[in-house]
Structure formats: structure tokens, C-alpha cells
Design a protein around this nucleic acid. Structure first.
Lengths: 128, 128
DNA sequence: CGGTATCCGTGTGGATACTG
DNA sequence: CAGTATCCACACGGATACCG
């Protein structure tokens, strides 16, 4: 049903750290996006979240579970299978994520330009 | 022109730290709200931002200035007067802040309820 | 008034290795 | 496969004091 997640869905060069908006902790927003299309396994999530360690992914998911944003379902199989899925509450964050992404699309370039200009010319203006 | 900022405009008991959305760093979102109505002086901003130290407020404002979100205007008077004002780019964050606040109004209670329930009953369900 | 300077505690998240 | 267990580094922000 659900197609595999694109391993490159998050550009490592994307200056998202500059975004003046953040959903939850560092990885939460990306996890929400990964789960948009339906339930995902632990290692499915790990793939596009380049460089995340198992420990941190677990932390992130546990925190989200605690807040009722995702459900965790463990199937007693071999090999083990665990699936994470957005709750309705978690889904309600999607509109917010979309708003943040829209803002970034529309305004982040200007912000980065301002930052670069400010860094290049640290000219303090003393005015009237 | 502009009326003084309400010193209680931010409820210290508000569980905003639980909000899964944040604008910039810790104080940035609140600064944006404080500047919504027009330019404000340093100490005007400090009042409603309960407990912020001058150092941190300066850091916050400098970072926002660097990103082109606010302008800083120093008037050579005695006593000194410095005013901070939102740029159009900074104003563009207002819609995002509004979206975040709307989400909180609609969904934060549910999140807090889930969190409390999860903390109260740390029952791990092992399922089929 | 509008900051700086200095010091410091905490926590988030990363590195690495190991396990049911 | 889906985690745990340790250890650790750094950045953020707070406390306190002082200055032009």
C-alpha cells in the first residue's frame, strides 16, 4: 500500500536549521512528515532521517507517543516488527508543518540573504 | 500611539513549553508578539518577558536583527533610547505565530491530557 | 537606559558498542 | 529488527555584577 520512503526526502544541505519555526524537537517535524502516508517501521523511519542514531529516534518516538501524537504497535513476529502511526492529534500537526514549509518557501531565502548581508557588512550604524 | 505592553500578556503558568511548535529560539515568538503593535524599547520588551535577563534579550534581538526580522534604531538622546521594530519579513511570522496559537488552543489540552494519562499509567501493552 | 562581561548548570543530541 | 547502555561535547540560557 504505502510506498517506501525516499531516502533523500530531506536534503542534508537544506538550511532547515535556519528556519525560525520548529515542530517539537529536532526530528519531530520530519517524523511527522515521514508518517504522513501511513504506518512506518522503525528502520523505515531511520532511512530518510540521515544520521539519526537509534537512541535518538527512540527518544523522539517515545516522546511523541507520550504526547499522543503517534501510536506504537509491536507485532510478535520473527524478525520483530514495530509500526508507528500518526494519531488524529498527530495528524493535526500536518497543517502546521505545511504552514511552516510554506513560510520557508516564501521567506527563508530572504532571511538567509539578510543574514549573509549582515555577516558580510558588520557596519554598525549610529544614527540621529 | 502604542499602548504599553501588558506585563501579564504571557502567563508564566502557561504550558507553552509543551507546545510542539516553536518560533525561533525560546523568546523569539514572544518578542514577535510584543512588537506586533509597533516599535518598542528595550525595557518595554523586558517587562512582559518575565524573567528574561538583559543578556538573553540582547542575544535574541541581535539574532533577529541579523536575520532581518527586526530593525534596531538608537536615538542619541539622554537618557538613551533604542527602539526595535518588526520588518516586513518579521511581520510575515505573525501568521505563523497565529497558526501556532490556534493549534494550541484547539489541540494542546488533548496533548496534555494524553501526556498525563501516559505518565499515570506506564502500562506497556504487548500485543498480538 | 540599555546594555556587557563572566561564570556556570542543564539538557539535547551525537558516538559507539552491545542485545533480546 | 528494534532497540539499550554508556559516555560525552557543546550550545542555550540563566545568575550576577558592572559600565557608558
Amino acid at each position: 500500500m504505502t510506498t517506501p520512503l525516499d531516502p533523500d526526502m530531506f536534503d542534508p544541505l537544506c538550511p532547515s536549521s535556519a528556519m525560525p519555526i520548529q515542530i517539537g524537537d529536532k526530528w519531530t517535524g520530519m517524523v511527522v512528515l515521514c508518517l504522513e502516508g501511513g504506518p512506518r517501521r522503525f528502520s523505515e523511519l531511520k532511512a530518510p532521517l540521515r544520521g539519526i542514531t537509534p537512541k535518538v529516534l527512540t527518544q523522539t518516538l517515545r516522546a511523541m507517543e507520550r504526547d499522543g501524537l503517534v501510536t506504537r504497535t509491536a507485532y510478535d513476529e520473527n524478525p520483530p516488527r514495530v509500526e508507528y502511526e500518526l494519531t488524529p492529534l498527530g495528524r493535526s500537526l500536518l497543517t502546521l508543518v505545511a504552514a511552516a514549509r510554506a513560510w520557508s518557501r516564501d521567506h527563508l531565502p530572504a532571511l538567509l540573504q539578510d543574514r549573509e548581508a549582515h555577516d558580510a557588512a558588520p557596519v554598525r550604524r549610529l544614527l540621529v
